[in-house]
Design a binder for these strands. Structure first.
Lengths: 230, 230
DNA sequence: GCCGGATTCAAACGGTCGTTTTATACGTTC
DNA sequence: GAACGTATAAAACGACCGTTTGAATCCGGC
């Protein structure tokens, strides 16, 4: 399978669109679908039309390919966060929360038509796999892909509650919102066990509206109670 | 050729406290910890001090042992639901929801001192594994262990919202509450990625209080909006 | 032509997997 | 004591795993 010249260095600046690229693509799809541990090197190479040895040659091993693919997904999700989820500080906190919820939910569920569906929900499917079966890079994924959005939510929540972002109520309200959103991440168990799952795009929009209003009311209620302990 | 001894009762009334019982015990601990796919028959037999062939002899295979162990856990969790989580219909709906949340959370997190910690959080750890890597009995687990509590929550929610349990708002409020609770299920990813996780018993009690008040306010807010669509 | 590095390939490595086979010991019942 | 069903034990089965090997192939530069 050689129709490409592939002039100079293999990984430095060269385009190298052949085997290496197809392996990255296959890794993105298969790892998201089945998780790191449930995809074999032979699966990847068959899908990419490459030889079994290609993964070791180009990435130094299965984990090397995983690392690279996760890195690409992280930069993708961070740029999506900046453009679609976050809003300038001038916007009222309530509206920023609504936007956060409305934009996050289709992204988490992998159904945002504006972005490559695979690339968008990728990191969430992947984190769900890490949840029960962590790889060596689990902490790195959390720090790079997850924490920026949590920090953003914490700032909003501090404003809504009228307290420091370090108040324990902030943390608990952040978890309340975030847990409702993550509930919609692709989930093989719910898909196979519950009828009507996953929800379609229209239902997803209604769910986002529900989560925003439900949570804003909850936050207002928590704000009326004194600062909590711990 | 023999997966089951045909004639006499190998499982019914016979004491058989030896290998078979130790395998069930090992299965309960190891499957909950690592999930079905990440525990090998040799792990189980080593832990139980049995021969590799014992699993096939007593349970007809690895899946047979899993089935039996899950069945025991399901009857355990259902009896716990009856005694600790549910309340009679006479109790006001708000109080029933509070009780549901307060009792569920330590159970889901595996930190209820009143019940065998392993047996209690068992089914939740297990469902988390099924989430990313389902076994053939995933749907059965959901139906037997999960749906009864969801149905109970739906009745409460119908009362609180003042509408039929079939109103779509009921379903969405149930998911809002349930997602906040399930967020606290044992989770290797969060453990390895976030400091301060998992929360201790005191923080867990505060979290339950937070979830109850947060959710009750959210529900009251949703109740003021007309019946939703879908 | 030929060289040298980059890439691909078929084959095999050692290892673990779930399961099966074969043989041996134990406890009853005849 | 012989026969029989039950239970455990050691060894092996075929399949798959991630990785490595070593030879074959390509291609620009000499």
């Amino acid at each position: 399978m050689s129709a490409k010249p592939a002039t100079a260095a293999p990984r430095a600046g060269s385009p190298d669109p052949d085997t290496r690229g197809r392996l990255l693509d296959a890794g993105m799809r298969l790892f998201a679908e089945h998780g790191y541990h449930n995809v074999s090197v032979r699966d990847l190479c068959t899908d990419a039309g490459a030889n079994v040895a290609a993964v070791n040659y180009h990435f130094g091993g299965k984990l090397g390919l995983y690392r690279e693919v996760v890195g690409a997904a992280i930069t993708a999700i961070r740029s999506v966060s900046e453009t679609l989820i976050f809003a300038p500080d001038g916007v009222p906190a309530e509206d920023r929360l609504r936007r956060y919820v409305q934009a996050s939910l289709p992204l988490i569920a992998g159904r945002d038509p504006r972005v490559n569906a695979a690339r968008a929900s990728w990191i969430h499917q992947l984190m769900r796999h890490e949840t029960s079966d962590p790889t060596p890079i689990a902490a790195w994924i959390a720090e790079q892909a997850f924490m920026p959005r949590v920090e953003y939510l914490r700032r909003i929540m501090g404003e809504l509650l009228g307290c420091s972002p370090n108040d324990p109520r902030v943390r608990r309200c952040v978890m309340s919102v975030q847990s409702q959103l993550l509930f919609y991440a692709p989930d093989k168990f719910r898909e196979s066990a519950f009828k009507g799952w996953p929800p379609n795009a229209a239902e997803l929009a209604r769910a986002a509206d529900h989560i925003a209003e439900f949570s804003l009311a909850g936050i207002r209620r928590i704000a009326t109670r004194g600062p909590g302990t711990s």
